[in-house]
């Protein structure tokens, strides 16, 4: 009796710490934020003292040209970053999918940029982009070329390059893993039928890799909306608003402008955007799995 009681409560005992911590430190804060976004709230007040203003924060934001600019920057950043990283990462994976001695050493070096603190990545790139002492301009100078104002005129592009440097290896490693788990028989058959390298890539490898590629791309897209520290250290959002992505604007609204209500509303906009992406990704993987199951069932019926 005692034993079976203990067994029945075991799962709850195992789950309890995780559930409690996530409820206190994740779900409650999120709910708190939604509640706070309807209030005119500044950091010196508790949320109870703040005045309820309904949807005012959301409407103000929607009509605020700075917010729109920042939203535009975020979308542009995410789009370019993911596009370039996918093209370069998948391209490299296709190129390097051969038996090379020391591939594991190579992979170790490629994951280095991802493991280093974003703050440090920002620091390195800020140094390299520096108008006078920076590596790039010094290089251009030594070849007699005109200097480029990396973090001024081309700030967004420069920030995108830094992110591509940091995260292309992620896509490279995942697509390489996908490539190496492709069914050998399909590739074999294609080669026997005389398909050229390009034809193999376009008609066989890419379509077979597609599920992994889409999930990877979506994951990267979601992460691209989270980037903050690298940009904060490199440009602090400037010059003007040219690199002020939403995450950065939220933190500035909260800490510099001291408008917690508006910052909360902005966080909610960002969250809704990401929610849409996540649901899309989840739906896609479910659909993929059910399709795979159907195919498997069909194969078994044939056999």
């Amino acid at each position: 009796m005692n034993r079976s009681m203990a067994n029945r409560f075991t799962p709850y005992m195992f789950m309890a710490p995780a559930a409690v911590i996530m409820a206190i430190a994740l779900l409650y804060p999120l709910g708190y934020m939604v509640w706070g976004s309807f209030r005119d709230w500044n950091p010196s007040q508790t949320i109870g003292e703040a005045e309820f203003v309904g949807l005012k924060n959301y409407i103000t934001l929607w009509n605020d040209p700075n917010f729109r600019e920042s939203l535009g920057v975020t979308l542009r950043f995410a789009f370019f970053v993911v596009t370039f990283e996918m093209i370069i990462g998948v391209g490299l994976a296709l190129l390097l999918d051969r038996e090379i001695r020391g591939m594991s050493v190579l992979r170790t070096m490629f994951i280095l940029p991802m493991m280093i603190a974003p703050v440090v990545v920002g620091l390195m790139w800020r140094y390299m982009y520096h108008p006078t002492v920076g590596t790039f301009n010094r290089f251009l100078d030594s070849w007699g070329l005109p200097k480029v104002d990396w973090l001024g005129q081309y700030a967004l592009g420069s920030v995108i390059i830094a992110d591509i440097w940091q995260w292309t290896p992620f896509i490279f490693i995942l697509s390489l893993a996908a490539l190496q788990s492709l069914p050998r028989s399909a590739l074999e058959a294609a080669r026997i039928d005389g398909a050229t390298g390009w034809q193999q890539i376009i008609h066989i490898k890419l379509p077979l890799m597609m599920p992994v590629l889409i999930v990877t791309g979506l994951l990267r897209l979601i992460d691209a909306f989270k980037v903050l520290e690298v940009i904060l250290v490199m440009t602090e959002g400037g010059p003007g608003l040219s690199t002020e992505i939403l995450a950065l604007r939220i933190s500035r609204t909260a800490t510099e402008f001291r408008e917690l209500g508006v910052a909360a509303a902005m966080s909610n906009y960002l969250l809704m955007l990401l929610l849409l992406l996540t649901v899309a990704m989840f739906a896609f993987t479910r659909w993929q799995e059910s399709r795979a199951a159907r195919i498997r069932a069909a194969v078994e019926e044939d056999a």
Binding site: L30, G36, L228, A254
Partner: peptide, 21 residues
């Protein structure tokens, strides 16, 4: 997945408010 998508910046406001008050 849902939680993975939440950016730290989104947690900034509520965490600041809750942890302080």
């Amino acid at each position: 997945l849902m939680v993975r998508m939440v950016p730290p910046a989104v947690l900034l406001v509520p965490v600041f408010g809750l942890w302080n008050n």
